[in-house]
Design a binder for these strands. Structure first.
Lengths: 218, 218
DNA sequence: TGTCTACTTCATGTATACAATACAAAGATG
DNA sequence: CATCTTTGTATTGTATACATGAAGTAGACA
């Protein structure tokens, strides 16, 4: 029974467990390679094992965790190869979205510009908010392609993308104002349905992390 | 309780529940749009609600089901739009794999030819085996790209692809010998690293279902 | 007769109890 | 001293009991 202005009245136990553990992973309270015990998660979220197990299953499906039978939930380390491959796939997905938008001369949703505006308003210190807005922008781009399955695929990359994004910001790479400028430029190119320009901007925007940061995720 | 002369070495309760419900969906014992009650699934698999719930969660994550809070697990209908979008994404993924194989001049794994050989041996009547071999071939193609994330993405499409594949064969579309010939031709093009030819073959091979069959899935 | 309401019923959400197993530490044996 | 065995303990896997909320039904009233 979610009221519309849901400040936070009654989240389900499963949802609380999910959010708590997910935040713990992103904060690196749970480090990659570490096992998360159900009891820990129970205490953290203040719920019993049933919803915790469902949350862990979900996090595993999303790629945050690896479930080992009778061992528990391992926080999945990201290898250099995986990070590289992830960026390649992400570029493929977003390029496809750009191509569809330009070729079918789709109108660029207002949502994307709005996200940029919100991006301006937020403090560069608030890493989680910045990462979230960045995610929303790229998600909106893929959504604008009109292909629901493409959107599902993009969402399935979200877990790892968010982890990398958080890390990138924590390391002080990726200035948020530069990101926002590039987003606006991309919107402009899309509005003119200039596929070549948009693809070039996208490719320049989506650069993998430098090698030195790899070890930090895995 | 499990009898002692259990031919199988004791699959976990969760796995049994997963297999049972998944088979039920593919057989269309559980029709699209129908709600699966946990009690039904419990009886079907002979286990209690705990492993059944985990199985349903997994099936939902894989795209077979939609979980509605306090309502249950709905067998997800596939709309015409989703089927179309699915083929577009699939083509994108496999095209990317083909491009990578050709451009990086990768050796085409023996596995792909072996699958074709097995395909020859199997009876065209055995729909499930044919669908499975077809899936394996395309999965091997994506795996040959060397991009592990691309493979994950392809696997995430599996649920819906399998449902459609089963349906296609049930309807007597897609002759299996034609499929196998096209697979062999694709291997040949890949071995020569002829990207243009391989992409053309792939595109011709991956044709969406005719419109008339749409209603049967949704 | 239609509709609104209160109640009954039942499925899901959550908590907890029980079972099985893997890991670790301590002891036995060569 | 090293290694194998044994046994204890902790954690996951499964079953079941309880709580909560939703949907349907029956009855009363307009």
């Amino acid at each position: 029974m979610t009221t519309q202005d849901d400040t936070r009245p009654a989240a389900s136990a499963r949802e609380r467990a999910y959010q708590a553990v997910r935040a713990g992973i992103l904060n690196r309270d749970f480090a990659p390679g570490q096992f998360i015990e159900e009891a820990q998660a129970c205490e953290l979220a203040g719920v019993s094992r049933s919803p915790v197990r469902e949350a862990l299953n979900r996090l595993a499906a999303e790629g945050f965790l690896e479930l080992h039978a009778r061992r528990g939930a391992l926080v999945k380390p990201l290898s250099a190869t995986e990070m590289h491959d992830l960026f390649e796939v992400r570029l493929m997905v977003e390029s496809h979205a750009v191509a569809r938008i330009c070729r079918e001369r789709r109108t660029v949703p207002e949502e994307m510009a709005e996200i940029c505006a919100r991006h301006e308003a937020v403090s560069p210190k608030d890493l989680l908010a910045c990462a979230e807005l960045n995610r929303q922008f790229h998600q909106a781009l893929v959504k604008a392609s009109g292909n629901v399955v493409l959107l599902q695929v993009f969402d399935s990359l979200e877990a790892n993308l968010t982890r990398i994004s958080m890390l990138s910001l924590q390391l002080g790479l990726g200035k948020t104002d530069k990101i926002e400028r590039e987003h606006r430029a991309l919107i402009e190119a899309l509005r003119h349905h200039d596929e070549a320009a948009a693809l070039a901007l996208l490719e320049a925007h989506l650069q993998p992390l430098p090698r030195k940061s790899e070890a930090l995720v895995g």
